[in-house]
Computed example of a mutant assay.
Amino acid sequence: MSGDLVRWATVAWAVFLGAHLVLNGRWWAWLLPSLLPPPLFVLVPGVLAGAAWATGDLVAAVVSGVALLLGARQAGLHPSALVRRPRRTSEDTAVKVVSWNTQHWCQAKEADPFYAFLHELDADVYLLQEYHHDVFDGTYRLIDDEARLRAEFPEHEVVIARGLVTLSRLPVAATVETVARRVLRVDLRLPDGPDRVLSTFNVHIPVQLRLVSPLRAGFYRAVRDRAGDRAREYAGLRRDIADCPNPAVIAGDFNTTPAVGDVRHITALGVDAVPLAGRIYPVSWQARAGMRWWRLDWVLSTAGAQVHSYRFRDPRGLSDHCVQEVSVSLADPDALASPTVRHDREAPHDALPLSGKHRPEGQ
């Protein structure tokens, strides 16, 4: 690579990164550039820094080095994960929770292997997303597989709403209305005491775009509209968690990578469990086979909920999302702190009834 080419490439990347840092999360159209594979935010400046050093261009090397440092956070790297160890807990009090985007609930696959895989996960609590089928026009239709769910999981209580399913071996204390439209909150009684309640938030934030031609105006209208939908969902979820008096686990498909500006809403909700996964670069979603470069799925906890372990499990071709698996227990009552999320007075109030049937869009 010639010196001039390296310098121009460095300038171009610096301009792009500067625009990304300024516009990301502030202008709806920047949702599209923010969908780049996050590793590019370290790979591109890393290659440019090496090339600039090789050609003796100290200025380009320094600029690329600065871009590399700024891009590390956008890439979602967790080097500390290599030294983080799972927390010890008693098997009598730990609850195994799995969260999984099912990719339209075995719409294009046989149901028997799908249910066999769910049984193999052997979770106390299942938080499942995309309990619907794709209509392939940007919308989805709800399905009714409740009879089989109850037959397959007779030891679990079943709660279904908004294209989401929560299954629990633990007694359901309450199913609570939420401001966020694509969230299902279910409160569970833990076995170590009648007053020990864990709130679970099953989350599916709408995706940023519709899979239609970018040459059509409708493509960009959808991006703008969904940017508004996503902002309302995050504001509603923030309020829902602030109003929750119990320790909580928030998990699901957020359709947000560390490079998307909306990640700041996620980190405000609770403590990210991913350092416990032991991966420098945790990923959960693949665009196609062999291209798992994005993390879209998250598990967070609030004060009083202790996550002891966290791992991704291969979906075995049943979904484009990995399964998230965590072990959770509650802290001693005296150790419980006040909520870590402030009440959002600007959050919307137009939540849908939990029992209501609707046609979800943009998930």
Rank of each mutant, 00 (worst) to 15 (best):
A173W: 02
L167N: 07
R148Y: 01
E152C: 06
A161P: 06
I160D: 00
I143F: 04
L170I: 12
I160T: 14
A147N: 08
R141C: 09
V186E: 06
T139S: 14
L164V: 12
R141N: 07
R181V: 12
L190C: 14
V172Q: 06
Y140A: 14
A161Y: 02
I160G: 03
G163L: 07
L184M: 05
S168Q: 07
G138H: 03
V158C: 15
S168D: 08
Y140P: 00
L149I: 15
R182G: 09
V165H: 06
F153H: 07
E155F: 05
L142P: 00
A151M: 05
G163T: 11
D144I: 01
V186P: 00
L170V: 12
R189I: 13
G138S: 10
R162M: 04
P171C: 08
T166N: 02
L149W: 09
V159A: 12
V186K: 08
L167G: 01
G193D: 04
A180N: 04
G138P: 01
L188Y: 01
A173G: 02
T178V: 09
G138N: 10
T166L: 07
V186H: 00
D144R: 06
D145Q: 14
R141W: 05
R148D: 03
V158G: 05
L149M: 13
A173T: 14
R150D: 01
A161M: 06
F153P: 01
E155T: 12
E152I: 03
E177G: 11
R169T: 12
T178L: 10
L142N: 10
A151P: 00
D187H: 04
T175C: 11
V159L: 08
L184K: 00
T178S: 13
L149D: 06
L164G: 06
R189E: 14
V179T: 15
R182W: 00
R182P: 00
I143Y: 04
V186T: 15
V159G: 02
G163I: 13
E157L: 11
E157P: 01
A147G: 10
A180S: 12
A174R: 14
A147R: 15
A161F: 02
L164T: 08
D144W: 02
L149Q: 03
A151N: 10
V158E: 04
G138R: 07
R162A: 09
H156C: 11
L167P: 01
R169W: 05
G193E: 12
R185G: 04
G193Q: 11
A180L: 04
A173Q: 12
L149E: 04
L190S: 11
I160F: 03
R150C: 06
E152L: 02
V183L: 05
I160K: 14
V159C: 09
V159R: 13
I160H: 10
D192M: 12
V172R: 05
H156D: 01
L190D: 10
R150G: 03
R189M: 12
V186G: 10
T139Q: 09
V158K: 08
H156K: 11
T139G: 06
G163A: 09
R189F: 01
